[in-house]
Amino acid sequence: MISIDRVDHLVLTVADVDTAVEFYRDVLGMEPVEFPGDRRAVRFGEQTIKLHAASELVEPTATHPVPGSANLCFITSQALADVQEHLRNNEVRIEEGPVGRTGSQGPITSLYLRDPDGNLIEIARYDEE
């Protein structure tokens, strides 16, 4: 048996890396980073989302890498009312929420939106006990 400690990074296949970086930086507050070989990503906390253009995939890759096929949940400590206001100010449509869900550590309240590629993005806050 092996033991997995945490997620280090995820890879999103995107139509346009510049557009994706702008969204994750400006809307979700992530830090843009660059890697050797002109590879780009965004970072938050100890995690990174690497952004691969659909037209220039990096091997090895997923079996069917296409923009818009991911469903990601991010946890915030901010009040969801403040998150909603920020999304409205950035003209980002909220698909659903706030709505109760279950996170990996217990009950959460979530907002759902989409990134420029159509990936479903859930921004959630753990419910107060």
Rank of each mutant, 00 (worst) to 15 (best):
S110R: 03
C73H: 01
S77L: 11
P98W: 01
P98V: 08
G103K: 03
P67A: 14
R88K: 05
R93H: 14
I75P: 02
I94T: 09
I94Q: 01
E95A: 13
R93E: 15
E91K: 11
S69T: 14
I94N: 03
E96W: 04
A79Y: 06
R88C: 00
E91C: 06
S104L: 13
G106A: 11
R88M: 02
C73N: 03
R88D: 05
A62T: 10
N89G: 09
S77P: 03
G100N: 14
N89H: 05
T76L: 02
N71E: 13
R101M: 13
A62E: 11
L80H: 03
A62V: 13
L72W: 06
C73S: 08
T109I: 04
P107T: 08
A79R: 07
P98N: 03
I94C: 01
T109Q: 09
Q105N: 12
S69M: 11
I108H: 01
E85L: 10
N71V: 05
Q78T: 07
D82S: 15
L80K: 00
R93P: 05
V99A: 10
P65S: 10
G100W: 06
R101I: 11
V92Q: 10
R93V: 15
E96M: 14
P67C: 08
L87A: 04
A62I: 02
P107D: 13
L87Y: 03
V92M: 02
P65H: 06
P98K: 09
Q84S: 04
F74W: 05
P98I: 08
Q78F: 10
N71L: 13
H86T: 00
H64M: 14
Q78P: 08
V92A: 08
V99W: 04
S110H: 06
P60S: 10
V83Q: 03
V66A: 15
A62W: 09
V66L: 15
S104V: 15
P107I: 06
L72F: 09
T61S: 15
Q78A: 14
G106R: 07
G68M: 08
G106P: 09
E96Q: 12
T63Q: 14
N90Q: 11
T63H: 15
S110K: 02
N89Y: 00
G106S: 11
T63W: 10
P67M: 07
H64W: 12
S104W: 06
H64C: 09
P65W: 02
L72K: 02
T102G: 12
T109R: 10
Q105M: 12
F74E: 00
G103V: 02
G97K: 03
H86S: 06
D82P: 08
L80C: 05
A62H: 14
Q78D: 14
T109D: 09
P65G: 08
